[in-house]
Write a protein that binds this DNA or RNA. Structure first.
Length: 240
DNA sequence: GCGACAG
DNA sequence: ATCTTGTCGC
């Protein structure tokens, strides 16, 4: 597991963070379809926090897109780099997530984020931000509609409805299991919305949430526990 | 001004 | 996100 420091020049205020989003937003690539579902690698990323101790752990889990078997894993631990502010989630997660991605022994392929991409107040959510900084194709799969509106999709797995910011479609509500609350899919970087939804369906043969996120979620929680466990060498680094 | 608000 | 036991069900 690698350790991370907050990057120099990292925004310290909400105003600065919003300015960074406005600046980087122009680098998002939206004219690529992205890798086809069921081919290559799909990587889930997620983070867990201990705000008391100011520690954050990230995990990246690479799956074979065809079989959903785990191909590789990596974790990283760092200090919390920003408070949670709706619309500024990326500043809280990205340094540690990037470190986990960098620690992977293979190419991640499509990166699946726990949150939003284009479906964001300034059209630059976590998935888009991570895509621009890493260069990888990314999508966002969120469990809640955030500030957006949507009509309930049909009851069957695969049914969708537009996720709307006013009249603009910023993503899609996608039912991944029959009769179960949908997830909310949006484009991050270098992937079309159709491709993003197809991948999300391919990643949910059994559960509502993508297998990639489930794997990354359990791994980052485990990494956080280990980083905080007594006697762990890493802990001292976060108390300085 | 007040409430809502990804994780 | 996180705080948290048991419990109902496949």
């Amino acid at each position: 597991m690698t350790t991370v420091r907050i990057p120099a020049g990292w925004p310290a205020t909400e105003e600065q963070a919003r300015a960074v989003q406005d600046e980087l937003r122009s680098r998002v690539v939206l004219d690529e379809d992205g890798p086809g579902p069921g081919t290559g690698h799909v990587t889930g990323v997620d983070v867990a926090y201990d705000d008391e101790r100011d520690v954050v752990a990230a995990a990246a889990v690479v799956l074979d897109a065809a079989t959903l078997d785990v191909v590789a894993e990596a974790t990283a631990v760092g200090r919390v780099s920003f408070p949670y502010v709706p619309g500024l989630l990326a500043f809280r997660e990205i340094p540690t997530v990037l470190a986990a991605l960098d620690a992977l022994p293979c190419a991640p392929g499509l990166v699946v984020c726990d949150g939003y991409g284009l479906a964001h107040p300034r059209r630059f959510g976590l998935a888009s931000h991570l895509g621009v900084l890493s260069g990888h194709p990314t999508i966002g799969v969120a469990k809640n509609p955030f500030t957006f509106t949507y009509d309930e999709p049909g009851p069957a797995r695969g049914n969708t409805s537009p996720l709307l910011a006013g009249t603009e479609e910023v993503g899609r509500a996608l039912r991944t299991r029959d009769g179960v609350k949908p997830v909310f899919v949006s484009v991050g970087h270098r992937v079309s919305l159709d491709t993003a939804c197809a991948h999300t369906l391919a990643l949910t043969p059994e559960y509502r949430v993508p297998e990639s996120t489930r794997r990354a979620d359990s791994l980052c929680r485990q990494a956080l526990k280990e980083a905080l466990s007594p006697g762990e060498t890493g802990v001292s680094d976060y108390r300085v």
